[in-house]
Design a protein around this nucleic acid. Sequence first.
DNA 1: TTAAACTTTCAGAAACTTCTGAAAGTTCGT
DNA 2: ACGAACTTTCAGAAGTTTCTGAAAGTTTAA
Lengths: 187, 187
Amino acid sequence: MNISTQNQSFIYHFGEMGSRWGFNRTVGQMYALLVITEAPVCANDLASGLNISRGNVSMSIKELQSWQLIQMSHIPGDRKEYYSSIGSIWDMANTVFKERRKREIDPTLSLLRASLLEKPTDAGDEYSQTKMQEIHDLLEMVTEWAAELQRLNPEQLSRLMKLGAGVSKMLSVKDQLFPNKKNSESN
Amino acid sequence: MNISTQNQSFIYHFGEMGSRWGFNRTVGQMYALLVITEAPVCANDLASGLNISRGNVSMSIKELQSWQLIQMSHIPGDRKEYYSSIGSIWDMANTVFKERRKREIDPTLSLLRASLLEKPTDAGDEYSQTKMQEIHDLLEMVTEWAAELQRLNPEQLSRLMKLGAGVSKMLSVKDQLFPNKKNSESN
DNA sequence: TTAAACTTTCAGAAACTTCTGAAAGTTCGT
DNA sequence: ACGAACTTTCAGAAGTTTCTGAAAGTTTAA
């Protein structure tokens, strides 16, 4: 398995970014390699191409599978397992978002919910509960919104994003169309 | 400095989540403590309250300052420096988003831009470049959109988010109002 | 000046994460 | 049943990050 210099730098970059994106170097490199390689790649080629041990490849494959980012396939007459990245770039972004929400936001939300059920015992607790409530509400709103956006198809999403500054105009159009709706909540 | 059990669990949780959010345990705990404590807290109290060394407090304060999340103040007749969290929860979320974008997306975008300027040398490179282009376009769109959203004030943002599913209806309303606009790009 | 009251720095210790490679496990054709 | 071709596991090595605490630095007041 030999990899062009251009692709090398992409792969190494993904490895380095990996830790910032929530997975480790090897997982990042492997995924990068699979994304930019059209044909499925076997475990041995991953190991030799990235200069890592066969064991590491096996563990990283498991990780990528748990993120639902890769797919396994076979070549007739060959017992090796071949791997390739799954779905479009949009799907990948979706998967990564969903996964990160699960790891980064959901646990905090449930902790906050539990905390907010307890009665504050002193003045300090009262202040801290109002802050926790604010964080809770913010996280909940963002979570729900993200779920909403993920329900749109890529075409709609892309249109919404390209609207750019238009979103604020859209809000005022909405006001003109439905001026009855409550929208002067003081947050 | 003594901390109620309820607040303890919030603080420890933030410590644990810290690494997933892009900072370390101590930074997470210190920030949590400062958010839920109304009165400014001095470095010694942070150290004793969280059971960490004075040196660690000093380094973590620097980190929080670089994220622009905390503020320093003084009490007349006292030479110690007192710290408190800055701004509303919205401001905090904004700051964290911006900072993460800077660390997690911007470097990848510039690498991709550089890569895409190079001429592909073989068929494999050609495929990988189309993939890189897709990732580039996606990241760029998301980045621009995020910047757009950050320009809205909290009230507008909150309204937009509460629109929820309404957002797709909005798009069709827009189509009816301005059917001339190009929106059938095949992505 | 001096010294007390504070903050910062940084070398090395502790804790944590990742990686290797040999051994164990699985699957399949004969 | 056997063994060849593969994959997985996991103990401990290597690498990385975080933390401590003693020493150095800074500020202020007398």
